[in-house]
Simulated scan of single mutants.
Amino acid sequence: MTAPRFDDPTQWMIPTACVWEVMARKVGNVHPGAAFRDADAVSFLLSAAVVTPNFGSRGDYEDVGGTVLACVRRTRAVVESNTNLGILLLLTPLAHPGAPMDREGFSRHVLNTERCGVAAARDVYEAIRVANPGGLGDAPEADVRAEPTITLLEAMALAADRDLVARQYANGFADVFDFGVPTFLDALRRFGCVEAAVIDAQLHWLAEYPDTLIARKAGAAAAADVQRRAADVLRLGGISSADGRRAGVELDRHLRSDGNRLNPGAVADLITACLFVALRERKVAPTAPFRWAATDWL
């Protein structure tokens, strides 16, 4: 089957990426079988639905920050918690009309002072205040409670060492293009369905990068511990083996043992970005098989 026709392909790519991410039974994250106190799968599905028009109807948007802010305001009209600030900070530049999906071309086209300047920083700061995510804005430099005097790119560079989403603005989305997308596509070839590919990709992300949301909420040692545990799951064969799946289930229990302080939310946002890039590059179709049939998983 061919992809559906829309005036703007982001009208189906963005919700598809968001829906795939939350529907996949990833360790420690919200999915249809696991919720947090202030958010469940429906919260994320509603968030995806309400922000899509800001991309489809604003196909000529020039300012990354303005779109992020408009989408955060739409989201807070339907959910009470921060479900998608990180996702929006990643998807907004990636979904920019005409943006090349090679890293160097993308950086030149979108990650510049015209689209990510001081005005964009002002809107993103306001979006952060509206979304009120845990831990962001606590650094003394470029405090989001103050009026910005630097560009969005400069603000993201200041936060790059403590936030995986901000790091993408500083490195031209290298982790998305060079690590995340190939990792997902490799898993898709091996497993033949989107859900298993997303789960496998998440484990590889967690083993490669300490999740910065965990680090902000529970400390760097906790994030490093999760990284080691994910690497252990992969050493046992990951979700390809019964031992790896058992270890993955144990990792999920650990991540849910302290409320949602160990929620690997930064990696979840990055996975959504990777899914969008794979869709935009036509490396995967929205009609691809989704559900993973494993009976010994979450």
Rank of each mutant, 00 (worst) to 15 (best):
R5I: 14
W12N: 08
P15V: 09
E21I: 08
E21L: 02
V22W: 02
R25E: 09
K26A: 08
V30R: 06
D40N: 15
V42G: 08
S43C: 05
F44W: 03
S47P: 06
S47K: 02
A49V: 01
V51T: 04
V51G: 01
F55A: 08
G56W: 01
L69R: 14
A77D: 14
V78Y: 06
V79D: 08
S81Q: 11
L88C: 04
L89S: 02
L89F: 01
T92Q: 10
H96Y: 02
E104S: 14
G105A: 09
L111R: 03
C116F: 00
G117M: 06
A119F: 00
A120T: 00
P133M: 02
G135P: 02
L136K: 05
G137Q: 01
G137N: 02
E147I: 04
L153S: 10
E154W: 01
E154G: 14
A157R: 15
A157G: 11
L158G: 01
A159M: 09
L164K: 05
A166E: 07
Q168L: 10
A170Q: 13
N171F: 03
G172H: 06
A174F: 06
F179V: 11
P182D: 11
L185F: 08
A187E: 02
A187K: 09
G192I: 03
G192F: 05
C193F: 03
V194T: 02
E195D: 11
Q202K: 12
W205N: 01
T212M: 02
T212F: 01
L213E: 08
I214C: 01
A215S: 13
R216E: 07
A222P: 05
R228H: 15
R228Q: 15
A230E: 02
A231R: 12
L236D: 04
R246T: 12
A247Q: 12
G248H: 01
R256K: 15
D258R: 15
R261Y: 00
L262I: 08
V267I: 14
I271Q: 06
T272D: 01
C274Y: 09
V277S: 05
L279V: 03
R282V: 12
V284H: 04
A285M: 04
P286I: 06
T287S: 15
P289Y: 05
F290E: 13
A293W: 06
A294P: 09
T295N: 06
T295F: 03
W297M: 13
